[in-house]
Write a protein that binds this DNA or RNA. Structure first.
Length: 275
DNA sequence: ATATTCCCCTGGAAGC
DNA sequence: TGCTTCCAGGGGAATA
């Protein structure tokens, strides 16, 4: 479900409400994730800790604790992290529940269990963690500049759509924003990345920034179940130009939007606007 | 190196 | 109504 704009929106909503609060109880109700959760270990690490910062790297949420530990949460396809009064009924698939002081619970809800939740001892361990170490620059940081993109695209033969989805190239771009960025740049998703002209790479770079910033302003895309930690949906679905619009007229030229499959994922594009 | 394909899961929508 | 099939925002591994 969540790509960079959604995870960043969740981070911001958490930052407003969980900082400096203490974890009073750890309830692991389901341990069977792709990487199983060690329930006693998790409780031992988190109990009585205060949350001191809410950060993000790529699609990973990083909740820093008062003893240098960092709780890492990845929401996979269907995950959410919701803050609710403990009196509110527990929804299905609330697999980890952290009771905070003040009578609220931080609930990790993930029907498909593709997500991850684990704790690392400190920032150093975080920066060396194999899951994070190979991730490319944040697209909205100065590290993701045109020179970098040119260098990475050079001689790459894979389709530019797959290139954008490669987390070692750039962090946080998933299927929706890859499709939308290519439409905004007017680039065909099957174009080999290394064959894009300097001008087209410049347009792609600008399109990625514009699309992600717009999605952040709209607080993310809610297709079905995405919510921030206050339970609010995003509004960016109204701004999607091609994603999910197979067969519907292109908003620029009326030609039907096409869907193809690349690396097992749907790609939506306008065959007329994206050559 | 790179490109598919499959897999991990559940649930909703669409088709019959 | 009920059954089956397909599809889904991620990511990693296995396979050609």
């Amino acid at each position: 479900m969540p790509e960079l704009p959604e995870v960043e929106t969740i981070r911001r909503s958490l930052e407003r409400r969980v900082l400096l609060r203490t974890i009073q109880r750890v309830d692991v109700r389901e341990t069977r994730f792709r990487v199983p959760i060690d329930a006693p270990g998790l409780a031992r690490k988190l109990l009585r800790r205060r949350i001191t910062a809410a950060a993000r790297r790529s699609k990973y949420l990083l909740l820093h604790l008062d003893d240098e530990q960092v709780m890492v949460v990845h929401l996979g396809m269907s995950g959410s992290l919701v803050l609710s009064p403990e009196s509110a009924p527990l929804p299905r698939h609330a697999h980890v529940v952290l009771r905070l002081d003040g009578g609220e619970e931080l609930r990790f809800i993930d029907p498909r269990r593709f997500g991850m939740l684990f704790v690392v001892p400190d920032r150093d361990a975080l920066s060396r963690d194999p899951r994070l170490v190979a991730i490319g620059p944040e697209p909205l940081s100065a590290d993701f500049d045109l020179a970098y993109l040119r260098r990475r695209a050079c001689r790459v033969r894979k389709p530019v759509k797959n290139f954008l989805l490669d987390s070692t190239v750039v962090a946080g771009i998933g299927n929706i924003y890859a499709c939308e960025s290519l439409f905004a740049a007017g680039i065909h998703p099957r174009t080999p990345a290394g064959r894009l002209s300097g001008e087209r790479l410049r347009r792609l770079h600008g399109a990625v920034l514009t699309v992600l910033r717009g999605a952040l302003r709209s607080r993310g895309t809610t297709l079905q179940d995405y919510r921030d930690s206050d339970g609010r949906p995003g509004a960016n679905q109204r701004r999607l130009r091609v994603y999910g619009r197979e067969g519907e007229p292109c908003l620029a030229c009326r030609h039907p939007v096409r869907r193809v499959v690349q690396a097992g994922r749907s790609t939506f594009y306008c065959p007329r606007c994206q050559q």
